[in-house]
């Protein structure tokens, strides 16, 4: 479980390294990325983190992974314990696959063996399985791999680490259709009650079938933070060409067949979620959507 409590991050000098701010700090001259963000990320669930470019997804993930921290103020808690970089007991519970994977001059298999010394639950069997599924070459140097292959190598490391929190920043970038299916299968097969997977993505539809919970970031905070189950229960996603339906809608978007709309769910039957529509609706007026949830 990961908890983020009242997190504010900004740049005191634009372009410099991001820093965590507290209430006592002077905000005025700075560029705030996230303000007062609080999240509770529970075990046994797959979380989708979405938002437009630059909204702070990567910054948030960097913070959760311990790359940004402040000793005097603990804002991130892993399994209830305050987390900052340098606590191997806690950082071994996280495996973070960054958006851009580094060109390391080490062989894939050697790097896996290196990582296995730092992740106590690392499984070489799982690693081998992932490599086979992705069709990678064990003996290849990581910096010789293509963008997609590098991604796949790091995804293999992630699943093999058996870390209880796997964090993926734009994992689908650079992956072809087959690899994307492999990734989906790996996410599906690796989920257990004590594991958490957080996926930040632009391509929500690629992984929507795998999600338990959606977090949408906008305006320096999380404007939507609900489970997929609840969203399907509380909201109804319909497609209709009746103009009168549009008036009842919480939000609508034109489509080839008429209008895609969100209505309050009165039928009592869970609806399938149109993620693109939900995202646009939340960005448009998050309060209107959120008011329907408990």
């Amino acid at each position: 479980m990961i908890e983020v409590k009242d997190l504010s991050i900004g740049y005191s000098i634009p372009g410099n390294t991001p820093q965590i701010f507290t209430h006592s700090d002077d905000y005025d001259s700075s560029e705030i990325v996230l303000r007062g963000l609080s999240l509770k990320i529970e075990s046994g669930k797959v979380y989708g983190l979405i938002g437009r470019n630059g909204v702070g997804k990567t910054t948030l993930l960097n913070c959760i992974s311990g790359l940004i921290w402040k000793n005097s103020e603990k804002k991130v808690f892993i399994d209830g314990m305050p987390f900052s970089n340098g606590n191997p007991n806690l950082s071994s519970r996280i495996f973070y696959v960054t958006d851009t994977t580094p060109p390391i001059h080490v062989r894939v298999d050697k790097y896996a063996r290196k990582l296995s010394m730092f992740y106590p639950l690392f499984s070489m069997d799982c690693f081998n399985e992932c490599v086979e599924l992705f069709g990678l070459n064990y003996k290849e140097y990581i910096d010789n791999l293509s963008l997609g292959q590098k991604k796949m190598a790091f995804l293999s490391f992630a699943f093999a680490s058996n870390a209880s929190h796997i964090i993926l920043d734009e994992p689908t970038n650079g992956l072809d259709i087959t690899s994307m299916r492999t990734l989906r299968k790996l996410i599906a097969s690796n989920m257990t009650d004590d594991k958490t997977i957080i996926i930040s993505t632009h391509h929500i539809n690629e992984i929507s079938s795998l999600l338990d919970h959606i977090i949408i970031l906008n305006n320096k905070n999380a404007v939507f933070d609900h489970s997929v189950l609840e969203a399907g229960r509380v909201l109804s996603f319909v497609e209709s060409d009746k103009e009168t339906d549009k008036e009842k809608a919480l939000y609508s978007m034109s489509s080839a067949y008429g209008n895609r709309m969100i209505l309050p769910n009165t039928s009592g039957i869970d609806s399938e979620i149109d993620y693109e529509l939900l995202y646009e609706a939340v960005l448009d007026d998050s309060n209107r959507i959120n008011s329907l949830f408990k």
């Binding site: 079938s209 399907g232 109804s236 996603f237 319909v238 497609e239 209709s240 060409d241 009746k242 339906d245 067949y257 008429g258 039928s267 039957i269 869970d270 609806s271 399938e272 979620i273």
Partner: peptide, 13 residues
């Protein structure tokens, strides 16, 4: 009139 309300994934499955 086209009114498509798709069922939640779990119901579809």
């Amino acid at each position: 009139m086209i009114f498509k309300e798709k069922l939640s994934i779990y119901l579809q499955i």
